[in-house]
Design a protein around this nucleic acid. Structure first.
Length: 562
DNA sequence: ATTGAGAGCGCG
DNA sequence: AAAGCGCGCTCTCAAT
């Protein structure tokens, strides 16, 4: 059963030929049961209201997300002229998630206004189904679209539940590191102290403001420190008394400005941090986030992420996800074997690479593989690449092929069918510039530099994008398995329906998840998260013998989970 | 006053 | 040990 939600001009919706008032939608959805695949223009538009009404959706087809994937995928042919102007499904922006308990606001996302008809979801679904069915890779694309839509459900659910956050613990972290909260416009004590030490070390006047990059750099030049920029890694290499207080100043200043008291007030309410996940917001298919910098939560403030009383966290991350994904998509049995390790469990792939004899140390295995996937050429990374290429020729050839395609300005595609964009006008101008009659050495060098840069992008795209697909399948499997575990009998708490008493996802960062769970379910949750990782591997790569081991921890604070 | 570019740093 | 991929955010500083 695949009901489609069709918005009507009067603000109601039409579902399977029946007019449904918005207020009735939750009960209609609930009555349809878990077998229904709810199809709509935008999960962000419909799902928050359903969750607020306590209704969970098991499966969905998000037409906006599906369209974005299919329109660009090299594995399909979209009907109509290739240069057709962008239609409504190409320009649809995700509806913003706004938390509101007002029933009138349940489905407040902006629909088509007045008598302007919105894009027709029924027709769009038919086009997407036909396009997928006509592809030689229909199975992979179906999996990708299902996973993307399941991700959209999970993203809204995580926003709905929120990440448990104790403001007083966060405040304690800030006070310990920065000093007590200062009055508006003043520097915290610890920063003020460091500012003094910086000025003293530079012989600079009391007026020198370390927050002004221009003034600071000028003072550093005058004092003969030897730094040409203020970057951390450049300063680290220098031997000068200003380095230590300056690096500490920068680190504390960063904490203050990015995750200080102002952040706490802006983003944490009623014991929860809510950030909007932007599904497919990164060109590779990774998620982005909007508001509060959820995907950049510094380790130092994770102490404030504390489970509710009677609850705990299960924190899991996939170990060396990207190199394992590369081995699988390249069909590299040798690297897959290194990933299984000598003991067959292979919790540390880099140790397995060392054991394979390719490189002498774990550190070299790591920087070497990162270099292979990012396109690094210099330093120790560049030095070990030939040895890795000798031991794992298939994997290295796979990323090299992707890089060369990018250098030629071609599209590359992930394992499930998400394709890269084409380079833009500037890129093409640079390339043609190298072929002009009057092209100079610098024109040629510029074209080459642009080409290489795009090659590094496409090289990484296939790996990062396929890793994101694995993570989506993992996430989809986890949310389904968690729901099946049922509910604990707990007193009413902060966890809202439909997740009251139930384990649920609260955080996701690329290859890591956090589940908030009644403490008694922790072991069961850990087992399901493991099973989900194995399932994701099978979904993407079938019987290919690649393992995706996790590190899993149970802890009441996120900071204790490492 | 507002906007945009660039620098820098947090995360994966 | 070093600067190769992808982001969001906040700051300064100059232009509008």
């Amino acid at each position: 059963m695949q009901p489609v939600v069709v918005p009507q001009p009067d603000g109601s919706v039409r579902v399977e030929g029946r007019r449904v008032a918005l207020g009735e939608l939750p009960s209609v959805v609930a009555a349809a049961g878990a077998a229904a695949r709810w199809t709509w223009d935008d999960t962000n538009r419909w799902y928050p209201g359903l969750l607020t009404a306590g209704v969970r959706v098991e499966r969905a087809h998000d037409l906006r997300l599906g369209h974005r994937i299919l329109r660009r995928s090299a594995l399909v042919s979209w009907p109509g002229p290739a240069d057709a102007p962008p239609g409504p499904w190409d320009t649809l922006a995700p509806a913003p998630l706004t938390s509101s308990d007002e029933p009138a606001m349940l489905f407040a996302a902006p629909g088509p206004s007045g008598d302007v008809p919105g894009p027709d979801p029924v027709a769009e679904l038919a086009v997407q189904d036909a396009v997928v069915a006509g592809s030689a890779a229909a199975g992979r694309l179906r999996l990708l679209l299902a996973a993307e839509s399941a991700g959209a459900l999970a993203a809204v659910e995580m926003y709905h539940a929120g990440l448990p956050w104790l403001a007083d613990v966060h405040d304690a972290v800030l006070t310990e590191t920065l000093g007590p909260r200062p009055r508006l416009g003043e520097r915290p004590a610890r920063l003020e102290e460091l500012a003094h030490r910086i000025r003293a070390a530079l012989g600079a006047p009391a007026g020198l403001n370390p927050d002004s990059p221009r003034d600071l750099l000028r003072a550093i030049e005058r004092a003969g420190v030897g730094a040409r920029t203020l970057r951390k890694w450049e300063l680290e290499r220098l031997d000068h008394p200003v380095v230590e207080p300056l690096l500490e100043y920068k680190s504390l200043y960063r904490l203050l400005t990015a995750n200080g008291w102002a952040w706490l007030e802006a983003w944490v309410r009623d014991g929860r941090f809510r950030s909007e996940y932007v599904v497919g917001g990164v060109v590779t298919g990774r998620w982005a986030s909007s508001g509060g910098g959820a995907l950049q939560l510094p380790k130092s403030v994770r102490r404030a992420v504390v489970a509710d009383p009677g609850w705990t966290f299960v924190v899991a991350d996939a170990a060396q996800l990207e190199p394992r994904v590369l081995a699988a998509m390249a069909g590299d049995e040798v690297m897959a074997a290194a990933g299984r390790g000598p003991d067959g469990r292979g919790a540390d792939m880099y140790a397995g690479i060392v054991a394979s004899g390719a490189v002498p140390t774990r550190e070299l295995a790591k920087v070497g593989m990162l270099g292979a996937m990012y396109g690094g050429t210099t330093g120790s990374s560049g030095q070990v690449l030939p040895r890795l290429a000798k031991t794992f020729p298939r994997s290295l050839a796979f990323v090299d092929d992707a890089a060369r395609a990018g250098e030629r300005g071609e599209i590359v595609t992930t394992h499930l069918g998400r394709s890269s964009p084409l380079p833009g006008a500037t890129w093409h101008e640079a390339q043609s510039g190298a072929y002009q009659d009057d092209a100079g050495d610098d024109d040629v060098a510029k074209a080459r530099s642009y080409a290489r840069s795009w090659g590094r992008f496409t090289r990484n795209f296939v790996v990062q994008g396929t890793a994101a697909e694995w993570a989506l399948c993992w996430l989809a499997s986890i949310r389904r398995r968690l729901w099946a575990l049922g509910a604990a009998d707990l007193p009413d708490g902060l966890v809202p329906a439909p997740f009251a008493g139930r384990p649920h996802l609260v955080f996701f960062v690329h290859d890591e998840i956090v589940v908030h769970t009644p403490a008694e379910f922790a072991d069961a949750v850990a087992a399901e998260v493991q099973a989900a990782a194995a399932e994701a591997g099978r979904l993407l790569f079938g019987d290919f013998p690649v393992r995706f081991p996790l590190s899993v921890a149970v802890a009441t604070s996120y900071a204790d989970a490492k």
